Computed example of a mutant assay.
Amino acid sequence: MLLHFISDLIRNPELQRQFSKDPDGTMVKANLSEAQREALNKGQLEPVMKLLKTELASLELFAVVWVKAVVQVNSATPDTGSSGNTVQLRVEGDFFTTGTFAALKLSGMDLPAVTQSVENPGGRGSVLNCMLNLPANAPIGVYDLAVVNPDGHYGVLPQAFTIE
């Protein structure tokens, strides 16, 4: 990946020495494509920037490099349920990963949901499908919905679900 190679080259004196002695061999060892090696060999900014732009346009790269921590919760369907019932909950948002879980939160009380699946994990337009058991003694009120990835990054949708 060109972005990582350039970043490493800037920060790593040993890689700088290797690159000075054998630029082509160093780039091959870094698994750069022929187009990436050619652009760096030309020493012209425009072709390198064009290749970097292509890499950055990749949703997965964008999520990993810059916004992995920004778990966004956009909506929950349904948004109401009754105490003593189980609800099939569909949560839409961004950057939910495999192993993500959700919980309703109200005044220190957490009602965890059981994750069934995550659609489009790691990307924009992720969907978390889960079962939410609403205990008969659950306080009536408006709850926040937290979605937590296994790495600890999370997002909260305030006042997302009402228990009636």
Rank of each mutant, 00 (worst) to 15 (best):
I163V: 15
Y143A: 02
R17H: 09
A35K: 15
A136Q: 11
D24C: 06
Q116G: 13
D79M: 06
D22H: 05
E55M: 03
Q16Y: 01
Q88W: 00
S7I: 04
N120E: 05
A146H: 09
H4N: 12
A160F: 02
S58H: 06
E34S: 10
P13Q: 03
L32C: 06
A76P: 13
K50A: 15
G141S: 05
S83M: 04
A146I: 10
V156P: 08
L3K: 07
S83K: 14
N120V: 06
S7C: 02
T162V: 07
H153D: 14
S20C: 03
L128G: 00
L104C: 04
T54Q: 15
T115S: 08
L45A: 15
S83P: 12
I163N: 12
T80S: 15
A138S: 08
V91A: 06
K68Q: 13
G108L: 05
W66I: 11
A136G: 08
L45G: 07
F95M: 11
E34R: 06
I6H: 04
G81L: 09
L56Q: 08
D22C: 03
E14S: 13
D144R: 04
Q36M: 11
L51T: 07
T86I: 03
R11K: 13
V127N: 01
D94L: 00
Q159T: 12
S82Y: 08
F5G: 11
V67W: 00
A35W: 05
G25Y: 07
V67R: 09
L134G: 02
L128F: 00
A76S: 14
S126V: 03
R124M: 08
R17S: 09
F62Q: 09
N149L: 01
D22M: 02
A160C: 09
N12I: 02
S82L: 11
T80Y: 11
F96D: 07
I6Q: 05
R37P: 04
Q116H: 11
N129K: 06
V114N: 08
K50T: 15
Q44K: 15
L106D: 07
N137S: 12
P78V: 09
